[in-house]
């Protein structure tokens, strides 16, 4: 197996980002316009115009902040998995010509999604700053939360990408699963409105722990649930190890299939 080539990863990440807006007049500026429009919808439309309120808080735009705090990480997470699933097939032309490490293709997707996340999060924090929002000290944990979240996305993505080479339905199954997963995670609603049985089950949803961490920091001015995060860290690395062992076991077959 060829080793992980840092310059190769950075180059395809740069190309992926610039190609996304290639040919448009505003170019990479769209990467800032999109998060701005999304945050405008979450905070102004939902919070102020539609008057959606978050139970237990008196702040006017608390629901908008709650929504943005959950949707920004979810977008990066689901985007990473969605694009990872078919990465070996999409980049077949590179894999068959250049002796490259296959997992490095997942790293480039992760980095590419991180750029979008970074822009969205910066815009979000700036909006909150200019609104005079009271920031919690737990904010310094955001890079670590994001790192854990993307590691988890990579673990799931690698597993799905390996299977997708042999069974093409995996791509569709992943899309459907992510859609269900989104609605099973309290991003647009609060967990308290769920019926008893579902409320008990939701604690086993790894994304609930991550989204809840962001919501606690931004909306409820509290630290994230540390014990749950330690457990999620162990689960993520176990999943990562499992996906990598599976990949190593099937690597030769994957290259032959492509």
């Amino acid at each position: 197996m060829s080793s992980l080539n840092v310059s190769f990863i950075l180059e395809i990440t740069r190309r992926d980002f610039t190609e996304r807006f290639a040919g448009s007049v505003l170019g990479s500026l769209w990467a800032v316009i999109w998060p701005l429009v999304n945050l405008f919808i979450y905070i102004v439309i939902f919070g102020k115009i539609m008057g959606a309120r978050l139970p237990g808080t008196s702040e006017m735009n608390a629901y908008g902040i709650y929504l943005a705090a959950g949707l920004i990480p979810w977008t990066a997470f689901s985007g990473t998995i969605n694009r990872s699933v078919s990465v070996f097939i999409d980049k077949k032309h590179i894999i068959t010509k250049v002796n490259t490490s296959l997992p490095s293709l997942l790293v480039y997707i992760c980095l590419s999604e991180s750029i979008t996340y970074l822009i969205s999060m910066t815009v979000f924090i700036l909006i909150l700053f200019f609104q005079g929002h009271d920031f919690h000290r737990g904010m310094i944990l955001l890079p670590f939360l994001y790192y854990l979240q993307q590691l988890f996305a990579m673990a799931v993505g690698l597993f799905a990408a390996v299977l997708n080479v042999f069974v093409r339905d995996v791509r569709e199954i992943t899309g459907v699963t992510l859609q269900l997963w989104f609605w099973f995670t309290p991003i647009v609603y609060v967990a308290d409105i769920l019926p008893g049985v579902v409320h008990k089950l939701i604690v086993y949803n790894p994304m609930y722990i991550l989204v809840q961490s962001y919501q606690r920091i931004f909306v409820f001015n509290d630290y994230p649930p540390f014990h749950a995060l330690v457990l999620l860290t162990v689960l993520t690395h176990a999943m990562l190890l499992f996906s990598f062992v599976l990949f190593r076991f099937l690597e030769k077959d994957i290259r032959d299939f492509l």
Partner: peptide
Amino acid sequence: SRNRIYLLILVNLFFLAGVFYLFPLWVVGL
């Protein structure tokens, strides 16, 4: 190269578990 990735996963695990375990214990005092 052969064992590198497994060791990196282990180092990563210690790093993140350390952040989420030691941070509340030493810094926040939870």
